[in-house]
């Protein structure tokens, strides 16, 4: 799993590349915990290079979104691939996490 951060004003964009399972979710979880502890509140998770997620990825997204809101911001998902969106949809995540077609449109909605 590759993870790349960039800041655009007060928004943190985190890009992930690869597959999210119970193993790689631990790496993402530790990374997100670090961002949140560092005060990040407006977070865009760029999922355009994520080709797969299990429920382990959903857990990380859920916890990070709760923490971002706890910091007074939110977490948006950008560029979610079709099959990954299906996993989000089957678990009711599309009604609690906002999805945007790309990073730019997610940023402009903060």
């Amino acid at each position: 799993m590759e993870i790349k951060d960039r800041k655009i004003n007060d928004i943190t964009v985190v890009g992930f590349a690869g597959s999210i399972d119970s193993l790689t979710a631990q790496q993402i979880s530790a990374h997100m915990d670090g961002l949140i502890a560092g005060g990040a509140s407006k977070i865009v998770a760029d999922f355009s290079q994520v080709d797969y997620t299990s429920s382990a990825g959903l857990r990380v997204v859920l916890l990070a979104a709760k923490a971002a809101r706890g910091n007074g911001g939110d977490l948006f998902l950008a560029g979610v691939q079709k099959q990954v969106e299906k996993v989000l949809s089957l678990t009711g995540f599309t009604s609690i996490i906002k999805l945007f077609p790309d990073v730019d449109s997610a940023i402009s909605n903060f």
Binding site: S55, R59, L62, L63, V87, L90, T91, S95
Partner: peptide
């Protein structure tokens, strides 16, 4: 059974795995 309808604050991540297995 997982909670699929509540607000984000009330959601728990548990049980989603088996839900996905039964759904797919």
């Amino acid at each position: 059974a997982p909670d699929l309808d509540g607000p984000l604050e009330d959601r728990r991540a548990g049980g989603l795995g088996w839900h996905l297995i039964f759904q797919t």
